[in-house]
Write a protein that binds this DNA or RNA. Structure first.
Lengths: 121, 121
DNA sequence: CCCAATACTTACCACCAGGTGAGTATTGAA
DNA sequence: TTCAATACTCACCTGGTGGTAAGTATTGGG
């Protein structure tokens, strides 16, 4: 349970990458940490509306195991824990840029196709 | 149920992109179609060891709805159906290249960290 | 003594992605 | 009439992901 692959062995590189970002909130966590540099647990929770504490800590722990985020604990009262991207997390975010751009184009396509419906769920 | 987003509205572009590739076999299907150009249903099934017919057709239908793959039906006996990437599917594959490269680097990192364990599940 | 604040931790539960295995439709060949 | 081949289609089931809500540990302040 230390620093090993959860679902490996992987078939290809895409597998290995999708594994570490699969999780409802992981790409958002990546995004949040990328934009703020360092964030405390509570800041992340408030920054991701709808996330449960359970999933937030679970995702953060997995991402720490995967070497994407750094977890710094300050033994104070009340406790303080700070999360930040590691070098690997930063490079993953960069590797996701093209995908994010593709998704943005897709959103614009969808909005153009259904101009009256784009906001309604 | 035509060409609309399944989980939208999306928070960001990454959401919109992750949505269309989330699915156990979708990135593999993308890869397979990218490398072979055109593939029949049975060829895809044999090319993705372990996939169930149910999930393969389900993923292919969703990807067709999302405009990633083109489905060409030949009304012959026995029936023949050919799948290929659309322009959007091709561009998505290109957008995934950086992510695949990152994953390949991660695999190499994992193999270097646990040299005796890299093959065992 | 109790509460506040923070960062979890745990138990329980619902939903859905995905797997299994059987069935369908079509038509030519034996 | 039955079978083969292809591409599904359907019913059923399991496991895992994620949500909910309550509990824990710590210590200073009122």
């Amino acid at each position: 349970m230390a620093a090993e692959a959860r679902r490996g062995p992987y078939i290809c590189g895409l597998d290995a990458a999708m594994d570490v970002v699969s999780g409802k909130w992981k790409s958002l966590i990546l995004w949040e940490l990328h934009h703020h540099g360092v964030r405390r647990f509570g800041e992340l929770r408030r920054g991701l509306p709808g996330v449960s504490e359970k999933m937030l800590i679970q995702h953060l722990r997995e991402m720490a195991e995967d070497g994407l985020v750094h977890r710094e604990v300050y033994r104070e009262v009340p406790p303080r824990v700070e999360y930040s991207l590691t070098e690997h997390g930063t490079s993953l975010n960069e590797a996701l840029r093209a995908l994010g751009a593709w998704g943005t184009a897709r959103r614009q396509r969808l909005a153009a196709e259904t101009p009256l419906n784009q906001v309604a769920g």
